[in-house]
Design a protein around this nucleic acid. Structure first.
Lengths: 246, 246
DNA sequence: CAGTGGTCTAGACCACGCT
DNA sequence: GCGTGGTCTAGACCACTGA
């Protein structure tokens, strides 16, 4: 209530007010002023404290709930989550990105780079007759980790593979040449034994189980841009999955 | 513009206006009036059409974006996604629920039901010394599908296992006795070969790969309530994973 | 009952994309 | 410049919780 209270919101800032409110709330939590599991001030109180409208406060709180930082109990109040949820979407952005995030050096050896006619499965998924096929042995710190076999619609991405080489990222190429970025992917995962060619390429024993993954990649608008079949060595790689309600 | 336009919003309904707007938008999409990929009317137009405030329209649109039904391009408009995203969270609600959703009959054979002292790993995860241990062979349509080994903090759930039997769901018991429901879970997945005891229990060949999963289950407030180690037959079971940006 | 979040309104101005 | 969505305000009333 004192005069020097909360001069922290800058109404002339380029940053949206709700974003500034989010940052201030995060700070209070980090500093320990608002402890894990504890109730934070009511929306009306925050409205006064930050000198913004209640809708702005609600927008900020809503975002922080999506981030798993706060949760609400109707009629009781808003509370700090005891555990901050994190959403590991490393896999969404492709092998190269994922490895970099895990502090490993990504690499690749191109096995097949071609334009082919879709077989039945690929046609069903990508809904087109002619596709790029890019099959690569994937390396992490120079050691074989996975085999990726990717298919992309030929007509959608003219000249996609022109000048494409071993040390390039497919997703970066898609972004640069076509302004297109993955937004959503569906993967199905099984455990299998390796086939003969996979044993050789990955340089593994014949009884080492692999994670066998099929993936469909989509844009923001829901357009499918890629179908990938891959196998991963499970002795050095595991998948982390987050399940959240709603 | 005609007088008989859109009498569909009922301001006296118990349903929130934004929810009614959501339903109407979904209907227009389903009926084909608003096609996949097409632009829907502007927020101002919808405000007039539905005779609600713009904020209400925005709330409805925001929800539908979260559901993957619409997407927005700032300055251009709001569009129907070409593909409706779905969030398979079947696994979040436990084996019984998941099997029912897949139209299989869930079952269980209790292998261990006990209270034990935490080993190092369990203590690190659950942060307590004494835990319930519930190890079950899991059946789908009477056939062995998985082995689940669950640990829950003893002090948090007094008398949890009193009267617990083979045909009961652990999560339903938690809900009934303690009003507690899983909200979030983190799983790590590997491919492995079965151990001897697993071969016998699941009645499989020694070279059939399994999906080996570790899981931590949390409440809405971020409190951890469960740690589970399980294996699944991969010849009849696969995991579906959804990756979404932000 | 008082206090909390949930819904809703009718305005206003700004930022972006297109032409 | 115009139309789009993005942000923000200052009110109002409702629904849930707990004393």
């Amino acid at each position: 209530m004192s005069a020097q209270e909360e001069i922290k919101i800058d109404k002339n800032s380029a940053l949206p007010l709700y974003f500034q409110v989010e940052s201030l709330i995060k700070e209070k939590i980090k500093s320990g002023e608002w402890k894990n599991g504890a109730k934070i001030p009511s929306e009306n109180a925050l409205t006064e404290q930050f000198n913004v409208s209640r809708n702005t406060v609600r927008k900020a709180i809503s975002d922080l709930i999506d981030e798993g930082i706060l949760y609400v109990e109707h009629g009781k109040g808003t509370f700090v989550s005891q555990r901050i949820f994190n959403y590991p979407t490393e896999r969404l952005f492709g092998f190269s990105e994922e490895m970099r995030k895990k502090n490993a050096k990504p690499g690749a050896k191109i096995l097949i780079k071609d334009v082919i006619n879709s077989d039945e499965e690929i046609k069903k998924v990508l809904n087109t007759d002619k596709v790029y096929r890019l099959k690569r042995l994937r390396l992490a710190n120079r050691k074989p980790l996975a085999i990726e076999d990717a298919y992309l619609p030929y007509n959608r991405f003219p000249h996609l593979m022109d000048g494409f080489s071993e040390n390039m990222s497919l997703y970066e190429t898609l972004k640069t040449k076509f302004g297109v970025e993955p937004f959503y992917a569906v993967e199905s995962i099984e455990a299998t034994l390796p086939r003969k060619d996979e044993i050789e390429l990955l340089n593994i024993k014949s009884n080492l189980p692999l994670l066998r993954i099929k993936r469909k990649t989509y844009l923001k608008n829901g357009e499918i841009i890629e179908f990938v079949k891959s196998v991963y060595r499970s002795d050095v790689y595991r998948i982390t999955l987050n399940l959240k309600r709603n």
